[in-house]
Design a protein around this nucleic acid. Structure first.
Lengths: 168, 168
DNA sequence: TTGTATTTTCAAAAGGTTCTGAAAATTCAA
DNA sequence: TTGAATTTTCAGAACCTTTTGAAAATACAA
């Protein structure tokens, strides 16, 4: 298989994968394109390679920057801006976990905590509801702390934890 | 806060949370509704509580059954079918991980393995690409095995691993 | 400054997903 | 069987998200 074809397939699949995870397909594709690109690419080049409009390229590249998965760069002698992706997959994963935790898990925890406190528990059903909220809170807290540890830890974390399990 | 209002807020938020994770909002809401419901509900009741059509209720309840998050039940003397959700949040999480792993991680792993083998590595860029695929594969495998362990393990896993980290 | 290259914005269009509701199919008590 | 209750299906409508592309804004060399 030619390199170009392999890259295209990877970009396509990564886009599909992303869209299953609530990430806009084009954003995931742009990320994949930059991940497998040896050199920084200009907005123009991203437009051409993905067959998308200028506006679309601009919007999705900025979203990637917002997620801290891509950085702007300058090339001496060039006026254009160029874009480079973080290529270390562990760093990428940690960054994604960090952002999603902040954007999603925290609001959820706040909501649960609030409902747990505010709800009237006069009926049996009320007590059941409160119990469910307490379990959810316990779960969210455990997940939160574990993910924090993962984000703070070095790239070996997953392997280490894996080895521990293997040797049990 | 009245129990009904608390339930409504929970259902709404759970729907939002789900839609950020690529799950149809209504499906997540139906799941939430059944999670906080003390009794099995009929399709009719789900329609009423969520203000959705018969077809929509049917489709999403079946999707929940397909994900093994909800089961059909019968109530003596009633002809209708009723629906109950798995209420143990650890079981729910394990089930979701299991399904998504199967539906998403496995195809991704296959694709990467294929590209890694098939790609021509005559150029430096080709070598770079292959290296990236190898890193991705390594990562996917580590994630896969760790998630398998998590799915197979009992509900204490997260707490145990948490304690280990705490005591380091 | 001025003029050109480049980036950003955003209203409208396109595309995709979800929902509705009525008709068809199924189930089951009698 | 029959027929009423219940569930399923699916084409079209509604809704939501993404994309386009041209105009406005910005950056910068001269």
């Amino acid at each position: 298989m030619k390199l170009d074809e392999a890259k295209k397939r990877f970009i396509g699949e990564w886009g599909t994968f992303g869209s299953q995870w609530g990430v806009n397909r084009t954003m995931a594709q742009a990320h994949a394109l930059l991940m497998v690109s040896a050199k920084p690419l200009s907005a123009e080049e991203v437009m051409e390679q993905l067959n998308i409009s200028r506006g679309n390229a601009n919007m999705n590249l900025r979203a990637l920057i917002d997620w801290a998965l891509v950085k702007k760069t300058h090339i001496p002698g060039e006026r254009k801006e160029f874009f480079v992706a973080e290529k270390n997959i562990w760093k990428v994963t940690r960054q994604v976990i960090k952002e999603r935790k902040r954007r999603e898990l925290e609001p959820l925890k706040n909501m649960i905590a609030e409902l747990k406190v505010d709800v009237e528990v006069d009926s049996d059903e009320g007590k059941e509801f409160k119990k469910m909220m307490e379990e959810l809170e316990q779960f969210a807290t455990a997940a939160d702390t574990t993910l924090d540890r993962l984000v703070e830890s070095d790239r070996q974390w997953l392997f280490n934890s894996l080895l521990k399990f293997m040797s049990k």
